[in-house]
Structures are given as structure tokens and as C-alpha cells.
Design a protein around this nucleic acid. Structure first.
Lengths: 357, 357
DNA sequence: CTGTTAGCGCATTCAT
DNA sequence: ATGAATGCGCTAACAG
């Protein structure tokens, strides 16, 4: 039976943009929808004779049929998708996370959808979508811009959504938490700078953490910076703290401005690796020697730290970033019937001196 | 009526991880599911008395109810999500695209899901998901790694999926196409290099385009490079063509290697802006002067081009990258009943000399 | 103003 | 080995 022999109604429908359903395939193949379902899902192994199977497959191919995902999800009570929630893309560490999670999803036969949450508004919307079961599980990734409230995550988990949060603040209540002890490692780096004689240390920060007092208190990086100054009996010079200097261009401009000043800093502590790299360039462009004239330290362990001159000293995971563990936690939750106990993992963060400080 | 007064069955269900449905809310509020639906969707404006509305809302809040997205999508025949298909994240131009599309989606009340397609396998899977109507429309973004076949896009569009493809090859058959005439602009840049006396021009390329002959023929950037050499009567020196040198680290290493050679190139044409920036660094680290010792040109107009020394000459859109047009095209298709005619837009690409060449 | 009802497209028991 | 029937959770006619 070919398309030409179809009743009129089908031809009409094919024109009207309506998509084919399993019923259409069944009709064309001369079988019932159940059989179509069996064949499409490869169920019932050999219980369907290959002639029938072929007939169905051919009918499906002819119509360009593919099962409707919404209907499937509704019926199966799962979407076979997991969701990665990040607050911005283009940050190298996020890219790595996406790659690792993607690999795990592929292996489990799951899809990965990424939601970029750049504002509180979109954060709320994303929480909502997660409640609506747009995915079978989610990784909530580190947030410099937006922070998710613990209670929202708890509620999500209570609703049965497998969840892994990468966060240093929220407690693991019904979900897993992966932490990175940034504060101590940043403190080590600051100690290093201070014990090697640096007294005017500038801070290149993210957006909100510098001016929003509440955020500043919570941000481990600027928190460690401020605490270290205090610990060593130094006053903080607010003019050395720059807001929104976490990307490459802003970082370069901020560093260049700082280094042009007569009372220029003798060290720069950058909250991102990208701005630290830019600071290295700004210093070199200003004719300064690193680390003698100005020392530079960044946060985050990018491969790029090894192609700067001198190599960039950073605070971060001891080796390269790796999120296979996070992915494992998520899929353990997603794939098992009974949810595992809440887990709390702390990944190492250390100060890695490489030459720029 | 509070949770305490619920029949036993409900309490049990609340423990078993089953999620509440509109029926549960209706029961708790003492109304019908229709009313719940009306209230939840804000339909029937004032036709629902506020007392009833409040009762429903309160019941929903009490149960932590939110409508099941799969059921909603199935019933409404739309997901209210659009999909951005990219081949990798972490590429600045993609980030901008995501931002612009996100803005448009927000405005239309749509969600944006991003699918990262790093391999042919995942490309096939993504096409499949699109067929399964995981979204109401999609933007297929420029692909250095994976290229989508025209026939796949055509089939998708024939199925009624609003589609915008950013591609220089596929024809707009049932969908819109946005092009960037990279070839001519790259040719201009090469002409500039060649007419200013450069004879040994290296090429830093993406992965496949260098070694896969078919891909090389299709890639506009290396194509323009090769054509320009030929046009000016120069032989191509394969040892000056480097594969997989499109990211920052690989670009740096490749450029450093090239510049260390006794027969080092007198110019570097990079297929990405990131590798061009790395090439600038490599040249400076090698003690070479740009553009006198070695000229550098990149592809793609990043803000960063203006913080290199000297500023990076690039091939790309005349101003900064902007994808509001792409977003507009998509949502015009998504939001209108009758699909607009196929549109084919060509965005300008030019050679912008800035100092490095 | 609100309840009843009929599907949306699919997977799955239960018959045969 | 296959078909008929049921319902996943929701929306939207239609009735009242």
C-alpha cells in the first residue's frame, strides 16, 4: 500500500500541516495502533513477525512519522530529558559542565536541554518549568548572577524531581549538593600575595557581588579578599575594587585603568580567570613586569592559564575542571526507582602558583 | 478546606511521590477541573468570581500544584518553547545569538531550550527531537563542526515546524535562511594581505575543514584562503595550514610553532577570532612586531578585537554581532497562523582593518 | 458562572 | 501475534 492509495482524507490532511499519528501509520500499514507502538519502541522483541514489522516501518517512513513527544511523555510519565540550568553561557567552566553532562545523558539515552538564566525573572520561570516536569532531572549550576533559593530547590525535590545543585550555601534537602570550597583557596592565594609583600591588592569582581552588600557578604571570592586584608591588618581601599570586571574586555579595561594610576596596585586578584588573563595583558601592555611590578591571580582553572606569560597563578580545582561526578549523581537519581540518600560532595579547590604571583 | 480534611487517599498519594493534578486541586477547592483550568490560565477574565478564584488558587498553592507541561502541550498542540540548535557553546558569537533569541522568546512568552550538537550522532538525535515536536520552532545556528543537511531541514519544515537556518549553503525551502557572505569578505582580507606584500600566509582552521576534502571545499573561510592564493599565483604550502586550531590554546600553540620556524609565515589568517587573538599573543611572546614581522587577521567581530595590541583586523559583520533579525524571523513564523513566505536574508560581512594587518 | 464531556497522541493491559 | 479499550493530565466546547 502506498501513499497514492490512501483515502482522500489523508491526502487532505497531509496538506493541512497536521502531523501524522500512530493511527495514520496503523491505517497505512493495515495494523492496529498497538502494533505500531510495539514496532516503534522495539518492544516485544521477536513477538512481531518481521513482515509486519517491515510493513509498519515502511508506512512510518512513507509518512515521515515520528511519535509525538508530549503524548509520549504524558503517557510514560517521563520526558527522558534532563535539564542544565546555568546563569550564562560563554563561561568556560560552564561549557565543560555542559560537555560532561551531555556525555552522561547520551550514555543514558537522555537528551539535555540547557536553560540560561540571566535574571531573577528567568530564574522564577525556570523553577516553574521544572515544576511542570519539563525534564526528569536537573543540574543547577554555579551562579554568579542569580542564586536559587534553597526553599525553591527543596520544593522541587519534594515534588520528586531529581536534583543536583552546585552551590556552597544550600543544604542537601532531598537533593544532592556539590560544593567547591572557594573561600579557603582564595584565602590561601591572598595570604600568598600578602606574605610576599603585596599591600595594594585590587579586586576584579563580578557584577552584583561588589555593590550589593548582601551579595558581597555571600560571595566567597570577594569575601575571602576582604577577610584576608583584615586578617593582615590592612584597610580596604574601595577604589581598588572594580565591579563587573569579570569578562575579558571589562577585565582588560579595569586592569588598564588601575595600572595607569599613580598609586597603582601591586597585585590584582581577579574573580574570574578570564579577567585575570586580561589583567596579565593589560600589565604587559603597560610595560609592567609580572609578578615583580604587579602580581596577578585568577579564579578558575582554564587551560589558558598555561599559555600566558608568565603562566597564570590561579585558585581553582587542582587539575582541570571535571564534572563527571556531578553527572553521575544526577543520573543515579534519575535512573533509580528509590531515590538515593542525599549526598554532599566537596570538590577540592586550591591555590596553584604558576608564575604570575 | 485544608489539607487536613482531605480524604485518606490524597494523603497517601502525597507521600508516594505522585504529583497533584488539576483533579486534586478541583477536589480540594470543591470545584470542577474546568474551573481549575480556567483559573490557572487566567481565561474567562472576570467571568469567574474572585471568591472561587481565590479558593482554587489557595488549593493549588496548598498542594504545590503546577500543571503538567506534557499534558498541556499535548492538548494545546504547542509547547511554547523554541529551540536553539548550536554545535558548541563557549563560542562568543553563539552566546550573542542565545542572548538575542532569549530576549525575543521572553517577549513572546516562550521558553528557550538550547541543544548542543557536537557530533553527527547528536545532530541526528536533535533532528529527531524536533520532529517529535519538542519545540514550536527552531533556529539552526552556524555550524563549524556539524552541518545539517538541507533535506533534513526541508522535511522538518514540511512537517510544519517554523525554522530559521543560519547557513550559506541550504536553500530556503519552507523555512527562512540567514546568510553571511564570508567568502567574499575573507577574500578581501586575503587580497589585502597579498597586495601588501605578504607571501607566506598561514591558516589556522577548524577541525574538519582542513583535512576533509569535502568539508574544505565547502568551508568558505579556507576556500577563500586557497582561492586567494591561487588568484595571486602563489602555491599553497600545506605545512602552513593547521587543523583544529580554532580555540585559544590550540591557536596559541599553532601560531607559536609556526613562528618558531626558520621559514616562518609573514602573515596568519585565522578562521576564528579567538585563535587570531592567540596568534597576536604568540607573535608578541616570540618578540615579533605586528604587523611588520607578521600580520594577523581573524574571523568574527568580537569586542576583544579592540583590546589587543595592535587592535585585531578581522573579517566579520561591520559592527558587533546582532541576531535580533534572526529572532524576529523565527517568531514571525511561530506566532502567525499562516506561515510567511520563505525569506532569505544576507547579513553584511566585511574586512575591517584595525592594525594587525 | 460552572460542570460535563470529549478528545490531544500514545503505551499498555487484557482479550482473542 | 494482534486488536480493542483505557487513561495519562489537561483544555475547550457545550450545556446548563
Amino acid at each position: 500500500m502506498t501513499l497514492d492509495t490512501l483515502p482522500y482524507v489523508y491526502k487532505r490532511l497531509s496538506m493541512s500541516g497536521r502531523r501524522w499519528t500512530s493511527r495514520d501509520v496503523a491505517a497505512l500499514a493495515g495494523v492496529s495502533v498497538a502494533t505500531v507502538s510495539y514496532v516503534m519502541n522495539g518492544r516485544m522483541g521477536d513477538r512481531i513477525p518481521s513482515t509486519t514489522r517491515e510493513r509498519v516501518l515502511s508506512a512510518a517512513r512513507q509518512l515521515g512519522y515520528s511519535p509525538n513527544r508530549s503524548a509520549q511523555s504524558l503517557r510514560r510519565q517521563k520526558t527522558e530529558q534532563v535539564c542544565l540550568v546555568v546563569d550564562s553561557i560563554g563561561v568556560p567552566v560552564i561549557d565543560q559542565l555542559a560537555r560532561d553532562l551531555h556525555a552522561a545523558a547520551d550514555e543514558a539515552g537522555y537528551g539535555l536541554i540547557t536553560m540560561v538564566v540571566g535574571s531573577a525573572e528567568r530564574a522564577a520561570k525556570t523553577i516553574d518549568l521544572l515544576h511542570q516536569r519539563i525534564a526528569d532531572g536537573a543540574v543547577i549550576a554555579p551562579s554568579n548572577v542569580t542564586r536559587f533559593r534553597e526553599e525553591d530547590l527543596v520544593e522541587l525535590a519534594r515534588g520528586g524531581l531529581p536534583l543536583v545543585a552546585m552551590d556552597n550555601v544550600v543544604r542537601p534537602i532531598g537533593f544532592d549538593v556539590v560544593r567547591a570550597p572557594e573561600r579557603d583557596a582564595c584565602g590561601d592565594a591572598m595570604d600568598h600575595l600578602l606574605t610576599t609583600g603585596h599591600r595594594r591588592i585590587a579586586f576584579l569582581g563580578h557584577h552584583e557581588e561588589v555593590n550589593d552588600l548582601d551579595a558581597r557578604a555571600k560571595s566567597e571570592r570577594i569575601g575571602a579578599y576582604l577577610a584576608a586584608l583584615q586578617r593582615h591588618g590592612l584597610e580596604t581601599d574601595e577604589s581598588l575594587i572594580v565591579e563587573g570586571a569579570d569578562d575579558r574586555v571589562a577585565g582588560y579595561r579595569a586592569a588598564a585603568d588601575l595600572l595607569r594610576r599613580p598609586d597603582r596596585p601591586d597585585a590584582i586578584f581577579a574573580a574570574s580567570a578570564r579577567s585575570a588573563i586580561s589583567a596579565v595583558w593589560a600589565a604587559r601592555d603597560a610595560g609592567l613586569t609580572i609578578p615583580d611590578d604587579v602580581a596577578v591571580v585568577g579564579c578558575g582553572n582554564l587551560p589558558e592559564t598555561e599559555i600566558t606569560r608568565p603562566p597564570l597563578s590561579t585558585v581553582g580545582p587542582p587539575t582541570t575542571e571535571d564534572f563527571t561526578e556531578v553527572s553521575r549523581l544526577l543520573f543515579e537519581r534519575v535512573l533509580t526507582k528509590e531515590p538515593p540518600p542525599e549526598r554532599e560532595i566537596t570538590n577540592p579547590w586550591v591555590f596553584v602558583p604558576r608564575g604570575s604571583a
